[in-house]
């Protein structure tokens, strides 16, 4: 459940969809970033969508993951979207100021 699986990363049109694990901390952030970057290089991806549907916990490591992807794609006009974030995740995004650069849906 907490393992990041290959099918959690899917490219649909020009969007990379990332289904995030239940908990995002420093321990798992590395897997997510690495896998995401592999897909970003491999395919013709413009935007990244982070799906928080299963996520109940995130700390600043998650902010690092989102910020890192944002830096990589924003210079090519790409956007970062956050979907299905619960109130706690939204709070973290608000405190970090990330809500100003990502599109929260």
């Amino acid at each position: 459940m907490n393992q990041v699986m290959e099918d959690d990363f899917q490219v649909i049109d020009n969007c990379l969809m990332i289904r995030l694990p239940e908990e995002i901390d420093h321990h798992r952030a590395g897997y997510i970033s690495e896998n995401a970057d592999r897909h970003l290089m491999r395919s013709d991806v413009q935007n990244v969508v982070f799906d928080f549907e299963n996520t109940r916990f995130m700390d600043s490591s998650g902010i690092g993951v989102i910020m890192g992807r944002y830096r990589k794609i924003s210079c090519f006009g790409g956007k970062v979207y956050v979907v299905h974030a619960d109130s706690q995740i939204l709070r973290i995004l608000r405190v970090s100021g990330l809500q100003k650069v990502v599109e929260i849906m």
């Binding site: 490591s61 973290i92 970090s96």
Partner: peptide
Amino acid sequence: LERSGMGFAF
């Protein structure tokens, strides 16, 4: 390491 620098702020 993509540390966001937000640890103490959080």
